[in-house]
Design a protein around this nucleic acid. Structure first.
Lengths: 247, 247
DNA sequence: GACCAAAGGTCGGGTCAACGTACCAAGTGG
DNA sequence: CCACTTGGTACGTTGACCCGACCTTTGGTC
């Protein structure tokens, strides 16, 4: 029975190390705050929109009402939601949602987010080129129009931008990529607030959006992925220059 | 106060629906079984290798020993691990790990896994082309050699194949992509057991592996992503033909 | 104006996952 | 034979989560 061989000393690869990292699944409460909070920040739930009644929503999410209320309460206190009692009341997305001014917590976490984003965006672009329907493209075109119509101040531009990228994920017709894209955009918002956005950059960015749609329509998967990657590099360069030196 | 506007009826997009889906974070126990189980199935922890002592491992994973033992016990009962008491004992990966004969649970889950894989693999290929060091490429070459040396029976080939793809993720130097790749490969194993693998298919597959390394060495990101996508299509076509009609 | 229905808000008790600590049992090396 | 390392067991504590009943506010309806 005496087996030797201590944990393969040579093969201490990054993958093996990843096995033994901390295991900490989020609680139901945390997950719920994350889900709803991201949806709000990302604009999927626009200001003024109403959530389903608590008892109903709890059933949809398949959690108890108590836990749901914890999450809702947290979001009310943070100013993302407002609650109104009585008939015709309900829980609504705040009209003036607080700016997501995260004070840049973990630094190497952002590296990860940026890289993960590359995978999700290019993957979505690739599959979208293979599968996008005309209606998917229309939804994307609408956001491009919105962005070019704005031009000046950044907040509404950013919202349309997010919706464009989520629409891209939807065009890939992959449930999981939509979820991943939403999550990634939420994470990005924490970063993007930190940097400046000259108007010319936005214009060029939106030109790339339009071009991407053309490539999707032409079913040019390779070109779409390539353009997507270039598109992301723009943001990256600005961010990396801004972030202090890392490991 | 009377706000109207019931949850934007028009905008019932896939992304919005995804918000209200079931929230069910895994328990620590489940997550731990998943982590270790995947690592074993995927061959990151080869048969015969020894895990750290329980008390130590529990600290690394930042969970209580009791919970860790639940997970270990589960893996012992399922035949993935064997435990030996006494000094010089420990917990070891079983020599003959049970075949992962998953009875194909959710069907549309696999669609999702396949699509997610496209994103992770192409994303990893893309970033690897930008960042791979010579030593990263060497690790991949080694697996290609291993695969071509085998040729006949499938199990060892599959193991080397997995390690190749994980090495690709490592070459992208993205922590998160390594983790995602490992997870995806674990999920894929459940599927791949279901299909046949003619020798000629494996040969062609390995030729693509070799070609991919060349493209990475040449820093041809677009070409690498393109080839990766083609490489995956091979598996997909076989699987989709096999899986019954879906929605 | 009385009443009802539909919402959010509160309370108390029950269950179970996870933790921590101490202790038992087995096997190996000195 | 002793001591030490390592897996196995037991038990009490905490806290997340659930369930259900009830209160409070508020707008609509008769």
């Amino acid at each position: 029975m005496a087996q030797e061989m201590y944990l393969c000393a040579m093969d201490r690869s990054a993958a093996v190390e990843a096995i033994f990292e901390r295991v900490q699944p989020p609680t139901t409460f945390e997950e719920t705050v994350e889900r709803l909070g991201t949806a709000i920040k990302v604009g999927l739930l626009p200001p003024g929109s109403r959530l389903p009644p608590e008892r109903e929503l709890a059933e949809q999410l398949d959690i108890s009402r108590s836990t749901l209320r914890q999450a809702l309460t947290a979001l009310v206190q943070s100013g993302h939601l407002v609650a109104a009692r009585g008939r015709g009341g309900g829980t609504f997305v705040a009209d003036a949602p607080p700016l997501t001014a995260g004070v840049a917590p973990a630094l190497d976490k952002f590296r990860d987010v940026l890289d993960y984003r590359v995978a999700i965006e290019t993957g979505a672009a690739l599959l979208a080129a293979e599968r996008a329907e005309e209606e998917d493209l229309d939804r994307m075109r609408e956001q491009v129009r919105a962005m070019s119509a704005i031009g000046e101040d950044f907040e509404p531009y950013r919202r349309a931008d997010i919706r464009f990228h989520i629409a891209l994920a939807e065009a890939s017709h992959s449930h999981r990529l939509v979820a991943a894209m939403t999550e990634v955009q939420g994470d990005m918002s924490e970063l993007i607030g930190l940097i400046a956005h000259p108007e010319e950059v936005l214009a060029q960015s939106n030109a790339q959006h339009a071009k991407l749609i053309d490539l999707l329509a032409a079913r040019d998967a390779t070109g779409a992925a390539e353009l997507a990657r270039k598109h992301l590099e723009g943001t990256e360069h600005i961010l990396i220059a801004l972030l202090p030196a890392h490991v």
